[in-house]
Simulated assay, not measured.
Amino acid sequence: MARNEQLIRQHKILQILEHSRYGYLLEEIRDDLVNQLGLTSLHVRTVRRDLEALQAAGVDVDSHESPRGRVWKMGTGARGMHKINASATELIALSLGRDLMLPLAGTPFWVGIESFWNKIKEELPDGIWDHYQKFRQVLHVSGVTPKSYKDQEGVLKTINRAIQQHRVVQISYQTLGQPKPKEREIEPYGVVLYQSSIYIVAAAREIEDLETRVRHWKLDRFKKAEALDAYFKPPKDFDLEQHLAQSIGIFASEKPQNFKIRISSFAAAWVREDPWHPEQKIESQEDGSVILTVKAANDLEIIPRVLALGAEAEVLSPASCRKAVAERVKRLAQIYQID
C-alpha cells in the first residue's frame, strides 16, 4: 500500500503544480498535500523525493531560485503536453472506449473523460474529425445500460477521498428487501465498475473474520456517506485485481468455490465463444457435451447463467446450487403451467 500512497501523492503534486504559474516552495506543496489528502503530517524531504521521482520518470518539472526561495513548477515542455495529435483510427478507438464508460456519467471519473475528449476535439484538424464522424455512422456500441450516478456524486467523492486517506466511512445503506437503510461503518479499499454499475470494495468494520469481512457494496444503495475521524490500515497482502479475479461476478460475502456444470453439445460452443471466467476449465465429453468448471463466490453468480441456457445446462455440483436451481425450475413450472 506504500507504493499506492506514493503514486497518489505524486499525482496530487502534478495537479497542484498545473494550477501554478510562478511555482511553489517545497513547504507550500507539502501543506497543500496535507490539506487535500487529509494527512496528519508529511516531511518536505518526502515531497522532494516525489518531485525527483517525477523528473526521473520524464515529467518536465523545474526548480529555480526566486525572491521567495527555490520554487518548483511545471516546465515549458509540460505546458505543451495538452497539445494532442491523434489519427482518425485512434480517435475511433477512443470514442468506443468513451461509449463503454457511459455508466460513469455523473461521477468524478466522467468529468475527466469528458475533459480529455473535449481537448481532443479542439485540437484535431477538420478533415480527421469529418472522417471520424462518417466512420462512427457505421460503427455502434450497444449493450451499455443508460445509467447515471449524478445523485450519488457526493457519496462517491467521499468514498474516493476516504480510500486515499484510509479513513473509516459511516454509511446509510439499504439492502434489497429491507424496509429501511441501516447505518454501517466500512473501510473502503477500491471502486469497481461491473456491468454498468459501480461497487465499493470495502471491509465491514463490525466483522472480524478476515476471509468474510470484505464485501462489495453497490453505490445505488448508498443513501449517505460520511468520512469519520477514524483511520484504518489496509491489509498488506490485499490486491484488488486478485481479489476480483477469484469469482466470475461481483459477490464477495462468501469464500469462492468450484461449480461444475454440464453443457450440452448444442450450447458448448457458446461457453467457448463467451467465457464465464478467464480461468474456467472445459472438459470435452464423448457425446459432444462439456463439463464446465468455474469459480464463484455465490450461487446467484451461477444460477442466472444456467437458467438462461434452459435445458442445455445442468448444475452437477455443489449440491446446494443444484437444489436451488431445481427449486426455481419447480416454481417456474407452476407459474407457467398450462391448464
Rank of each mutant, 00 (worst) to 15 (best):
A2N: 12
R9S: 09
E18N: 01
Y22I: 04
L33E: 02
L37P: 05
L37K: 13
L37N: 10
L37E: 14
G38D: 14
T40S: 08
E52Q: 14
A53G: 08
L54S: 01
E65M: 11
P67Y: 03
G77C: 02
A86N: 06
S87P: 03
E90Y: 13
L96M: 09
G97V: 11
M101A: 15
M101V: 02
P103G: 08
A105C: 12
T107C: 06
K119R: 15
D126H: 12
F135W: 14
Q137N: 13
S142E: 15
Y149G: 01
Y149S: 05
Q152E: 00
G154R: 05
G154H: 15
H166S: 14
V168E: 13
L176Y: 15
P179A: 06
P181I: 02
R184V: 07
E187T: 00
V192E: 00
Y194Q: 03
Y199E: 08
A202I: 03
A203Q: 01
A204S: 07
E206M: 14
E211Q: 07
H216C: 05
K218F: 04
K218D: 04
K236W: 08
D237G: 07
E241N: 11
I250C: 01
F251N: 13
F251L: 05
K255G: 02
Q257S: 03
N258K: 10
I261C: 12
F266R: 08
A269M: 11
Q285C: 05
E286T: 07
E286I: 15
L292A: 10
N298W: 07
N298G: 04
N298T: 01
E301D: 06
I303S: 15
P304Q: 09
R305I: 12
A308P: 06
E312P: 03
A313I: 10
A313Q: 10
V315H: 12
P318D: 03
R322W: 04
K323N: 02
A324N: 08
Q334L: 12
I335C: 11
Y336N: 14
Q337F: 11
I338R: 09
